[in-house]
Simulated assay, not measured.
Amino acid sequence: MAQMVIVVQAVSATSFTVYSNLATIRILSRGKCGLSRCVTRYLVAMAVVDLLIIIFDLILRRIPIIYQMRFFRELPVCNIHAVLLHAVTDCSVWFTVMFTFDRFVAISCRILKHKYCIERTAKIVLGAVTVLCSLKNIFWYFMYARLYIWTVTEFLHYILTPCVPFVFILMLNALTIRHILVASQARGRLRAQNCPRDPEIQNRRKSVLLLFFISGNFILLWAVITVYSIWSRMWSMGYFTFHLPTFVAGLGFMFQMLSCCTNTCIYAITQTRFRKQLMSVLKYPFSLLVGLNKHRNKIRCDSIIEPH
């Protein structure tokens, strides 16, 4: 009974996560949220890879029956699954880094902004990151074939993702905050006393709010699984005398999966237009059911009053 409850909860959480990411992709792709095309490209890409993580990590890993099929038994499914899962996970992490860098350039580098912060550059950056992440994680295929040493290689993997991105995000956010503070003080001295509200400052605050929410959410929710993974590898190599409790790994995994659906909430909090579009998407299934029910009742009434 307890296992059944856990399965039902997992299915419910997965369904909510998949629906939220699909809704986010749909809303952002329409381009009616008041965001630039460059920003929209990054946000859509992040939502897509988050959805793929849910598919590869929660759905495919929890449905082992497909691996019992004869077609799959003749393929190294675990090896292929590991490559795809780690590739999309790396993409999710580095897309966040690239988005942070894009916003840093847009806010802090006025000259470079018009050349870098455009849709074409975003496509090139996202494509390049996808290719590099895919090539980097091919070693997982051979890892499961026992051609490499597990502990050292996996330890280096967690150093590159997400420890290095943590450093980049914190550094870029610090530089962005410093630039905003300096620029705000300068504009404040130049503005007249009778014009307290500066539209430029307001736009910057909204952009920075979205940036900090996304990057901060990423760091907080990835911190537990990162610490546990590195600690476990160090312990297996004999550097630590005690191992962290197993429940820490489960907690870290839960937080990591939670990061795949929290961006929808972040957009809803920070973007008014996105919030309106999201409400429309959430109401659509219920509106469809109400419409179908009204149509069915109308047909029933017509059949009753129609003379025989």
Rank of each mutant, 00 (worst) to 15 (best):
Q3H: 07
M4A: 14
Q9L: 14
A10Y: 14
V11K: 03
V11I: 12
T14S: 10
S15E: 11
Y19Q: 05
A23Q: 01
S29W: 01
G31C: 03
K32R: 15
K32C: 13
C33Q: 04
G34F: 07
S36M: 07
R37Y: 05
R41A: 05
V49L: 01
V49Y: 00
L51V: 00
L52Y: 03
L52N: 02
I54H: 02
I55T: 05
L58E: 11
I59K: 02
R61E: 14
P64M: 09
R70C: 10
F71E: 12
E74L: 11
A82R: 00
H86I: 11
V88Q: 00
V88W: 00
V88Y: 01
V93T: 10
T96W: 00
T96M: 03
M98I: 02
F104D: 01
V105A: 08
C109I: 12
L112K: 10
K123R: 15
V125M: 01
V125L: 00
G127E: 03
A128M: 10
A128P: 03
V129I: 12
V131P: 00
L132D: 02
C133Y: 01
K136N: 14
I138Y: 14
W140T: 01
M143E: 01
A145D: 13
L147R: 04
W150A: 03
V152G: 11
V152Q: 14
T153P: 01
F155H: 14
P162A: 12
P162I: 06
V164R: 05
F166M: 06
F168Q: 06
I169F: 07
N173S: 12
N173A: 05
I177A: 06
I180C: 13
V182Y: 10
Q185N: 08
A186L: 15
A186P: 09
L190R: 14
N194C: 07
C195V: 06
C195Y: 10
R197P: 05
R197K: 08
P199D: 03
P199Q: 04
Q202P: 10
N203T: 07
K206S: 14
F212H: 08
W222V: 04
V224T: 13
I225S: 06
Y228A: 05
Y228V: 12
S232M: 13
G238K: 05
G238M: 07
F240D: 04
F240Q: 07
F242C: 12
L244P: 03
G250E: 09
G252Q: 11
G252L: 08
F253T: 14
C261A: 14
C265V: 13
I266H: 06
A268C: 12
I269E: 13
T270P: 15
Q271L: 07
T272V: 15
F274Q: 01
L278S: 00
M279W: 14
L282Y: 03
Y284M: 10
P285H: 01
L288V: 04
L289D: 08
L292H: 06
N297E: 13
C301V: 11
I305N: 12
